[in-house]
């Protein structure tokens, strides 16, 4: 587990984004418990924003408004369809610790859309054209 931010720095009902190795982690505090998920929206891959949680203790993506539960990563409202990955988190000596496992290790970059010859996956289109 990696130390991240002091628990006392987290307002109840808020979240922060913290980098652990290659992983961007969203750390949310609800009451006196902390939760950690991936901080990258599963829809348009944008980074979720630090700040107060949306009503219902949800994380709202700033771009298209997808709502996720920071507790289990589930999608509360679209346009995202895939849950955020969750990570184990706990407070040790007043500091939030998160285990991102292998996600923290640098991996070979997946081909970006600007890699010549790259194509979208069939899954990203949903299905064949006809």
């Amino acid at each position: 587990m990696e130390p991240t931010v002091p628990f006392a720095s987290l307002e109840p009902g808020s979240c922060v984004v913290h980098q652990i190795g290659a992983a961007k982690v969203l750390i949310a505090r609800i009451g006196d418990t902390v939760h950690a998920t991936s901080a990258i929206c599963t829809h348009a891959r944008v980074e979720l924003a630090a700040g107060p949680l949306a009503p219902g203790c949800l994380v709202e993506c700033p771009m298209h408004g997808a709502l996720f539960s920071p507790v289990d990563g589930s999608v509360h409202e679209g346009p995202a369809v895939t849950a955020l990955k969750t990570y184990p988190a706990r407070v040790v000596d007043g500091v939030v610790h998160v285990d991102v496992g292998e996600d923290g290790a640098a991996r070979p970059a997946t081909p970006s859309p600007s890699t010549p010859g790259a194509r979208p996956s069939l899954a990203s289109w949903g299905r064949p054209a006809r």
């Binding site: 348009a44 891959r45 298209h64 679209g78 346009p79 859309p113 979208p120 990203s124 289109w125």
Partner: peptide
């Protein structure tokens, strides 16, 4: 966005970013 919601464009927002 509404057209995407209805499934008339591919669901992944990066699916039309290649090329």
């Amino acid at each position: 966005g509404s057209v995407v919601d209805l499934g008339m464009l591919p669901p992944d927002p990066m699916s039309l970013s290649y090329g």
